[in-house]
Design a protein around this nucleic acid. Sequence first.
RNA 1: GCCGGCAUAGCUCAGUGGCCAGAGCGGCUGUUUUGUAAACAGCGGGUCGUGGGUUCGACUCCCUCUGCCGGCUCCA
Length: 612
Amino acid sequence: MSDQHDNLAAMRHSLAHIMATAIQRLWPEAKFGVGPAVEHGFYYDVDLGEAKITEEDFAKIEAEMQKVIEANFPFEKFEKPIDEAISWAQDEHQPYKEELLNDLKRAGTTVAKDLDASELGTIAEGDSAVDQVSFYRDGDFTDLCRGPHVESTGKVGAFKLLRVSGAYWRGNEKNQQMQRVYGAAFANSKDLRVHLDQLEEAKKRDHRKLGQELDLFVISDLVGPGLPLFTPRGTVLRNELIKFSEELQREAGYEAVWAPHMTRVALYQKSGHYDKYPERFDVSSVESDDKFMLKPMNCPHVAQIFASRPRSYRDLPQRYMETTTMYRDEKSGELHGLSRVRALTQDDSHAFVRHDQIESEMRAIIGMVKQMYLTLGMDLSVDLSFRDEQDKYFGDPEKWAEAQSILEQIAKDEELDYQVMLGEAAFYGPKIDIYISDALGRRWQCATVQLDYVQPERFELEYINENGQPERPAMVHKAILGSIERFLSVYIEHTAGKFPVWLAPEQVRVITVNQESETVEFAEKLAEHARKLGLRLTVDNANESVGKKIRDAEVWKVPYTLVIGEKEIASHEVTPRIRADLQVQEPKPIGTEEFLKTVAHEAKGRASKTSI
RNA sequence: GCCGGCAUAGCUCAGUGGCCAGAGCGGCUGUUUUGUAAACAGCGGGUCGUGGGUUCGACUCCCUCUGCCGGCUCCA
C-alpha cells in the first residue's frame, strides 16, 4: 500500500514538472517557485510577470502537457555542485530557485529545519552533504528537484487542472504573490472521476447553498459580511443544538450565567489580551470617556463572577456555562458562510477547580462531548496538544507534566482515537482538541477542552483551602459544539440538509388532497394537537396536485409527510411517507394520535432513525 | 489584508456597443378538486451591485468603491 502511495506521490510530483514544462513552452519568461505533490494532486507556483494564467488557459496547458506525456521523455537525474547550481539559476533567470539554493547553501550540510515541508519537494535531500544538489530533466525542461519521479513522462495516470489562485512565495504574506496552478491527479481515470464526483457532491452540499435552499440563514449586505441572520428554520437548528448541549452540561453540574456583550477595555488590559488581539471591535461611548469593546471571548467576564465573593475549597468546582455570542473582526478575505464569521456563538463553559479536581472535571466533559457526537452520528478523534521543551509556557512545569499525564490517561480510558501533538499547547495550558469527521471524510475541529493556569493568575483568583490559606484555582474551558455557526456549517454538509427528526425545522408536513372544509378542518386539528405535543408540523392545503405537494415536501427534506383525504378522515389512520434515510421498514397505517405521540417521543429521545 | 475571477427579477441563469432587457422556478389571480416527486391559463416583478468616465448611444468598454467566489495569509 505504501508502495502504491509513494508511486502516486511520484506521479503527482512528475505532473507538476510536466505542467511546468508546458507552461515554460507557452510562457518562456515564466519564473518557477515550487511544485510539490499534494493530497489529491499537485500544483506549481509560477510568476509570469505581467501575464496571468486564467482558467481559459487550462485547455491550452493541458494540451501542451498531453504532448509532453505522449513524447514520453525520461526523467533524467543529474547532480551539480551547489555553486554551479546557483549560477545555473542565474543564467536561467530563475530567482526563486536561486533563493532556495542560496538558503540551502547557507543552511550547510543538511536540509535546513526552517525550510517548510512544501519546499522540500524541490530541494535536494540532505543525509549527505549539500555540496551537490540534484536536478531532473524531462525533454526541454530542467528543474532543481530532489525527486522522486516516475521513469518517464508517459507514466503519470490521469489528471485535470482545476483552479488557479494567488499564493505568497514561501507562504509569507510579505513576499511576492505568485500564481498557483492546481490540478487533481490519480492513478487512473476512474479514480480521477471518483474524486471529481466527490467535489461535485461537496458542492451540492455546500452549506451556503443549502442554507439558501432550505431557508436556514441569510446574509444581508446592510447588516454586513460575516454577520449571518438566522431565519425561523435555522433558529430551530441552533436552539435545539444549544438545548441539548446545555442539558448535558446541567447534568454535569454546570449553572447558567450571563455576561453583557460589551465591556470596558480595562478587563482585557488586566487579562493581558487587549494588545494581543487587533481583531477586537472597539465601542465608544457618547456619555463618558470610557473605552469599551465587544467581547471576543467569555472567560475574563466569567472570571469576574468567580472573583465576586470569597470562595472556600468546599465551593469548588464552580461551574459556569453560557451559550453566548462573541465578536471578532476577522479580515474580510477570511469570512466564509457560517464557518468563519464575525459574530460567533459558543456553548462555552468555565469550571474553576482545585488541582485534584481537574481529572474528574475533564472526564465529565469528555463524556458530554462523546454523547453529543454519538447522538449526532459523527466520529471523533482527538489531538492532545502538549507543551514541548521550550520555555514559552506559563506555570509550574510539574503541574503541567501531571496535567498532561491526566489528559492522556483520560484519552486512553475513554478509548479515544488520539495523537499527542508536542508544542501545540496554548501558552496557558494543555488542550484536548476534538475533531469530528463528516460524511465526506473531512476532519473539523469543533469541541475543545483547555486547562488554564494563566487567567486565574492574572485575575488573582483564589479560594481558601482547608488550612485557611489562599490558593489559586485552575480554570477548565470547554466548548462542546464550539461555534454553533461553524458547527452548523459542518453539520449541514454532513447531513446534506437531511436533519434527524429532533433537529428538523419542520418535522411533519400534512398535505390535503382537496380544499373541502372537512379536509382542511381535519388537517388543522391535527396541527393544533401536534403543537401541543411540541411538534413542528405544517399544513399544505394549497390548490395544487398531491404530486406537486409531495415533491415540495421532498425538496424541503421534511422527515414525515401525511396525505389527508377521505380515507384518512373516515379511518383516523395515516400511512406516513418517511424520508428515505430515516426509514427502517415499509411504513404501515397508524392511528393519527399514535403517530403524533410516536414522533414526539422520537424527537425527545433524539433518535436517529424512525420506529414508525 | 493579498492575487485572480464574478455581480442581470425573490431563486437559478440567458443576453459581449444599437429600438421599450429575457427564460424557468417561486409569488399573485382565476379555472380545476386533485391520492404519494411538478395540472392549465393569466398577471405582476429589474435604476442590469455603487459612483464616475469613454461614446451620438453602455447591461455590454475603462476606472473607483462595495459584496460574493476560488485560493494565499491568519484563526486566542
